[in-house]
Structure formats: structure tokens, C-alpha cells
Amino acid sequence: MASEAKDGGGLVFKPMDQFNVEALFGSGPIGVFTITNVTLWLALSIVAVICMMVLTTTKHSMVPSRGQSIAELAYGFVYKMVEDVTGKDAVGYFPYIMTLFMFILCANFLGLIPGSFTTTSHFAVTVVLAMAVFVTVTVLGFVKNGTKFLGLFWVASAPLALRPILAVIEVISYFVRPVSHSIRLAGNVMAGHAVIKVFAGFAALAVVSPIAILGITAMYALEILVSFIQAYVFTILTCVYLKDALHPSH
């Protein structure tokens, strides 16, 4: 079977090749400042954000155009989320949360372009995003509430005997947050893309190719859903964590 793969005529599965980080110019080793395909697609996500939020709103129309409606919709969506989940006093952090949402949304959808590179499928990216949230929330919690922030781990409403055990569980769950936060996003995006690539590999067989292509179509539709939902989930969890920092009482 391995020889089949080597022939090139049989089934060739390289579902993970799409995630390779490669230098755009030349083929030298990748240093910190090397311009890679990651750089390109990160830059394109900036372009997408500018197109969506800046270029559509240049006219300041009282009656919005289609583009401006989308920008206003995205604004209202995240603004309401921050207001409802975190509280009215948290609207100061709205630009920060909006940045996360817009970046993840644009990166996810850019990743759905065939042949593109999905930046949010890399743990390097999602870990940075999640750690940024984790560190911000922790620092903010101590700055705003001082030692009262530790009350987050001390469940005052539980029976006294249970409290130490609950405290241990709370501390563990608190430190697991950035892990789940980052792996959830990258894992979902990566798995979907890999599955599409596997289906694409099957499409080389004439017998199953209709089913394979149908599978790709179905997966693609699912991935569109996942792209939005994962951006939404990441953002709303950020809001929830931020609420813990601002109002640590249970």
C-alpha cells in the first residue's frame, strides 16, 4: 500500500501539509522575522478587517449601505455581547474584544478559501490569543479587586467542609481555561480542514469521487458554520472570563 502512495496514481493523503509553515521568498530556515505564508495570511486578515470595518463606513451614511450594515451588525453583535455578558462597566474593553473577534472571524473565513493557509489552525496563534486573555484577566482581577479576586476560588455559598476541595477544583479549572480556550479554536479549525483534505484524497478514486466531493461540500458548509461559531465562542468566553475579573463574586 505504501508503494501505491509512492506511485502517485493511488490514494495520497497529506491532510496536514496545508498547515506547513513555509518561507515565501527563498527556502532558508525560518527565523523570527522571516516572511512566511503565515505572514501573508495574517496580513490578508488585516486587509479583510479594514475592508469590512473601515472601507464600508467611509460615507457615514444615515441609511447604511449593505457593507455598512455588515460593519454595524458586527459592531452591535459584539457590543451587546460585552454589555450583556460582562456588564455595562466593561464597555471600555470592547475594542480589545472586538479585535479578537474580528481577527478570528476573518482568519477563519480566509482559511476557507481553497489553497489558503489558516492561521487560526495553529496553536502558536491560538495559544497567544488565549494567554493574552488569561494574563489580562488575571492581572485585571488583582488590580481591580486586590486579594478579593481570590474569592473567585473560595465558594462562600458551599458548606465549609467542601470549600477547600472546591477551591482546588476551581484553581485547576482556572488554569485549564487558557488550554481549553486555545485548543478548542485551533482543534476545531484544524480538524475540519484535515477532514476536507482526506475527502479530497478519496476524490482521486473514480468510484468514490462523487461521494467524496459530496463529503467535501457538506464539510465545507459545516466549516462555514464552525468558522463563525468558534469566533463567537472564543469571544463570549473572553467576556465570561473578563466578568470574573471585574466581578469575582460567584
Binding site: I30, F33, T36, L42, T119, A124
Partner: peptide, 9 residues
């Protein structure tokens, strides 16, 4: 390549 990705991110 994490350093590279984190830098550009």
C-alpha cells in the same frame, strides 16, 4: 517556527 508566528501575530 512558533517564534516567527507569534511575532507576526
Amino acid at each position: 517556527n512558533w517564534g516567527n508566528q507569534i511575532f507576526w501575530l
